[in-house]
């Protein structure tokens, strides 16, 4: 038990995680470029035309991945926030704040693409529907987290305050997810069902999943590169950052 615990904590120090993240970023970047490239090709040239919505339904290939990512990234943030509070590890808090901007972007994109889809199909950009409203609250939670963190000078206290806000807000995720079942909403019910049979064309489903993994890979590339910036900033007093900076100076960065 002893050695396994140390291994696990080996990567929990910013100094050891910084180079690891650096090695992972290119893989996730190329994964995202590849998957999104293939996904976009499928979205426009392979996926069949919808019998009811014609070509307009193709917005699904960015709307659904963005919405899934906005919820998924919030859950990952909540996970890191909980670990940060329990183990008091600085790196967990850094991971939480590195995910927030990308999560906020996906929440905004979910709302934006949803509105651009709703206008032609429902005839309105916005309606105070259960799902749309809870997704809007999710966007405010992301922005609130970022604003809260930047308003607290002491990083350690900022981490704790941020973590508490995220954990308080995590109840919003099941509300978004089940909103279409709890209230009779204008928004479509869940088409992709883990349990039952998914009522969707095969090619459309595959295209949407590829786009989702593309956005997932994109989110990890941005989060890992942002956590490296956060580590440099917060660990600037340490010797390993000084040495790294000297190396950068040598290379004329």
């Amino acid at each position: 038990m002893h050695s396994r615990l140390i291994n696990w904590f080996k990567f929990s120090s910013p100094a050891t995680f910084y180079p690891l993240a650096g090695r992972l970023v290119p893989w996730f970047t190329w994964g995202a470029v590849l998957l999104l490239g293939v996904g976009l090709y499928l979205s426009f040239f392979v996926a069949p035309t919808d019998y009811k919505q014609g070509e307009g339904y193709r917005i699904i290939f960015i709307h659904v991945p963005a919405a899934w990512m906005s919820m998924f990234l919030y859950l990952v943030m909540a996970g890191w926030a909980a670990i940060g509070l329990v183990f008091n590890t600085r790196l967990s808090a850094m991971m939480t704040s590195s995910l927030a901007p990308t999560g906020a972007m996906f929440a905004f994109l979910a709302l934006w693409t949803g509105a651009f889809w709703g206008k032609p199909m429902w005839g309105t950009w916005w309606v105070w529907d259960a799902r749309l409203t809870s997704e809007l609250i999710l966007l405010f939670l992301y922005i609130g987290f970022i604003a809260l963190k930047s308003s607290i000078d002491d990083p350690r206290r900022g981490d704790r305050a941020g973590a508490i806000l995220i954990l308080v807000g995590v109840i919003n995720i099941p509300i978004i997810y089940y909103s279409v079942q709890w209230w009779n909403t204008l928004h479509q019910g869940s088409t992709i069902k883990m349990s039952g049979e998914t009522s969707m064309d095969e090619v459309m489903l595959i295209t949407m999943l590829i786009m989702t993994f593309g956005c997932w890979s994109y989110a990890f590339a941005t989060a890992l590169s942002r956590v490296r910036c956060i580590i440099l900033e917060r660990e600037r007093g340490t010797t390993w950052v000084q040495e790294l900076i000297e190396k950068e100076e040598g290379r004329g960065a």
Binding site: I62, P101, A221
Partner: peptide
């Protein structure tokens, strides 16, 4: 034209592309 939905389809994909390119550059 996207079967008449051009504004909406390209409005959605365009904004997504814009943000997903801008964010890495800002980083």
């Amino acid at each position: 034209a996207m079967g008449g939905y051009g504004l909406y389809v390209w409005g959605s994909f365009g904004m997504s592309a814009l943000l997903m390119v801008a964010e890495p550059l800002l980083l």
